[in-house]
Simulated assay, not measured.
Amino acid sequence: MTIEKLAPGVWGVLATPLTADGESVDTESLTRQVEHYVRIGATGLTALGVFGEAMRLTPEERRAVVGTVAAAAADLPMVIGLSALDAEAACAEAANVLDVLDRPPAGLMVQVGSPDPDAVVAQLNAVAERTGQGIVVQDYPVVSGVSIATDDLVAAVRRIPAAVAVKSESSPSPPAVATLVAGLDVPVFGGLGGTGLLDELAVGSAGAMTGFSVPEGLIACVNAFRDGGFTAAREVWRDYLPLVNFEFQAGIALSLRKHSFVHRGLIATPAVRPPAAIAPEALLGVLREHLRHTPYALPDRVGS
């Protein structure tokens, strides 16, 4: 198996746009979203992540998402998320989508399925061996329901030869990222909507792999840190952080971000699938105010 570690930078986690009734994937909007990431200089893309509502898509819809992203992504590498926590089901998910690609993905993102490091090693090595793909190890206990000690995660990843990155989303994220970076030789990316991005960079993260409606800000922050360190990145990031925090509200984060994408002209409707909650009407005006004050958010579209 030949694998390459993920390049540092910003790997945009894609939303899955839906038609207004929520019944179908809007591939035209998905193409527009991917083309935007290509245009702004993202390092790579992540399809079928939590932000992409992967667990609420049918197998046929997942194939459509992966095929659409691959067709629009130009030369950008792609990570494909797998929702299942057990190796057998994860491999079935991978088999469902891998054959629509004309080149291998940069990796398969698999959530940690057990607090036991030995079980994690068995789980992720099985997926790697059966699919022949590199593995992005995702630690996201709020979604998976699995909490693993960070030291145990370090011990597990050291025994996964196919690991190409770790996506750390265990709160508080900066201490977890610091421990992972110190103990591993694979890149560690932050997530959680970018809420801990600056501090994660300060303790050694390779960048961000997350969803945010103005990903230009993620890229600007990561580039500023690379070129000028903490002070330069902080100067850039402070203009985006109010919107980052506003969007990352429990239960309605996905809906808020989709509304932002609609205002930006990147998708056609803000539809989400249950059990995702719809953002309250009272907050949509607040969202427009945040967008008006956020660089690159196309304020000329806001309120139209």
Rank of each mutant, 00 (worst) to 15 (best):
G285H: 02
P172N: 09
A15Y: 12
S260N: 01
T231Y: 05
P59E: 12
V177A: 11
D21V: 03
G191S: 07
P17M: 15
P174R: 06
Q123Y: 14
A90C: 10
E247D: 04
A268R: 14
A7D: 11
T231F: 02
R158I: 09
P215E: 02
K167D: 01
R288L: 02
E28M: 05
S205M: 05
S205Q: 09
G145M: 12
I219V: 10
C221W: 08
T16M: 03
M209Y: 00
L57K: 11
L243H: 03
S147F: 08
V38R: 15
A94C: 07
G49T: 13
F230Q: 05
M109K: 00
L254A: 03
R130I: 06
G113A: 15
S255A: 14
S213I: 08
A20P: 09
P104V: 10
R292Y: 11
L57R: 09
D118Y: 13
V100I: 06
L98N: 11
R39P: 08
A87F: 15
V143D: 02
H263G: 01
P280H: 05
D227C: 00
L85H: 13
P117D: 08
T231A: 13
L101Q: 08
S147R: 15
E129P: 09
R292A: 13
T179P: 06
E61C: 09
V121M: 05
L45P: 08
A202I: 12
L6D: 00
G229I: 09
G204W: 09
E247W: 01
C91Q: 15
G207N: 06
L6P: 00
D199G: 09
L291F: 12
K258E: 04
L256R: 09
A74K: 13
L14R: 02
A206Y: 04
V110S: 07
F51Y: 07
T68M: 03
P280K: 06
A106I: 10
L241T: 07
S255R: 13
D199T: 15
A271P: 03
V121Y: 02
I252A: 02
E61S: 06
L124D: 10
M209H: 03
V142E: 13
R273A: 15
R301T: 13
S24A: 07
A155R: 14
G303K: 05
G107S: 08
P172V: 08
V136N: 02
G107Y: 02
N223Y: 07
G211W: 00
L298C: 09
L256S: 01
L45R: 04
G196K: 03
S144Y: 03
A208H: 10
A277C: 13
L153N: 10
A297L: 05
P8V: 07
P295V: 14
G303A: 11
T294I: 11
S29T: 15
T131K: 04
E53H: 04
G190K: 00
A165P: 01
L184P: 06
A73V: 06
P17L: 08
S260P: 00
V222T: 11
P295F: 13
D227W: 06
D227Y: 04
G265R: 11
L14G: 11
P242L: 14
P17C: 10
S83P: 01
Y296E: 13
F246Y: 04
Q123W: 05
D99M: 01
V79K: 00
S29F: 06
Q123G: 07
T46Q: 00
V142S: 08
P295M: 14
V69T: 08
L201H: 05
S173H: 05
P117L: 14
A268E: 12
